[in-house]
């Protein structure tokens, strides 16, 4: 349990580094909107979802649009319904309380790292949680530093810091590639994601692309045994 926790934390070092860099940008924006470090930490600790927090800070004003903020957060975070569902097999046999506690600190980053680990058959719920805690500390440290430093990194785009996220998620996606059977589902999800990205607001593109890819995989005739392929894939690593 303890070793799994630390193994998870360690595996999240690359994503936590980019979360810290991105967090500092977020902190700068928050300072411009007049948030205190306590407001920021309250948000980090309870919401803990980068993209939604950016939008919330963007909507921040003298009189907070409470309902609009909650709705925007809900829509942006709809993908967590799918992310949560995909973690089900990690929690088989665990108590309700264990599930309830571990699920709070699930973000895109530690979820992606855990899913990759799961491909090698080594993921556990403590691995996921260790990554979540480490990510939470890094994101919080970066954002509070950005808030208090008020723009110490004056031009993050110049240093390609905004590209840290696409880059790290690309690397993690490679780890989830299961072979030829993924070609069609991934093409469909990429195409749908691009369409939704252009025509729909927020993060709908993740939900629509992900669901579309999964549905294509569902409709495909499975003449080959997927469990057998899974076994050969694991054996390759």
């Amino acid at each position: 349990m303890k070793s799994e926790f630390f193994r998870g934390a360690k595996a999240n070092v690359p994503v936590a580094a980019s979360a810290m860099a991105y967090g500092s940008v977020f902190g700068v924006l928050a300072s411009q909107k007049g948030l205190t470090w306590l407001d920021l930490m309250f948000m980090n600790s309870t919401v803990f979802a980068g993209a939604a927090q950016f939008v919330m800070v963007d909507m921040w004003s003298e009189h907070l649009p409470v309902i609009a903020m909650a709705l925007a957060t809900f829509v942006i975070n709809l993908r967590y319904l799918l992310i949560g569902a995909s973690l089900e097999s990690l929690f088989t046999g665990k108590s309700f309380l264990h599930k309830a506690c571990m699920m709070h600190l699930v973000a895109d980053e530690n979820w992606a790292v855990t899913m990759r680990e799961k491909r090698y058959g080594r993921a556990t719920s403590w691995f996921l949680f260790g990554g979540g805690v480490f990510l939470y500390l890094s994101w919080s440290f970066g954002s509070v530093a950005g808030l208090l430093g008020g723009g110490s990194i004056s031009d993050p785009q110049k240093y390609a810091l905004d590209f840290a996220f696409p880059a790290v998620f690309t690397a993690l996606a490679v780890g989830l590639w299961r072979g030829k059977s993924d070609i069609l589902p991934w093409l469909v999800s990429g195409g749908l994601a691009m369409l939704s990205y252009h025509y729909l607001p927020g993060k709908w593109y993740i939900v629509i692309g992900g669901l579309g890819g999964a549905i294509v995989a569902m409709l495909k005739t499975s003449d080959e045994d997927s469990a057998e392929k899974e076994a050969t894939h694991v054996a390759q690593h």
Binding site: S86, L176, S189, I206, A217
Partner: peptide, 16 residues
């Protein structure tokens, strides 16, 4: 079969 494909498809649509 669909649920097994979901993580990769989800991450790929996040990236593209």
């Amino acid at each position: 079969q669909g649920m097994d494909a979901l993580p990769g498809a989800l991450l790929f649509s996040l990236v593209i």
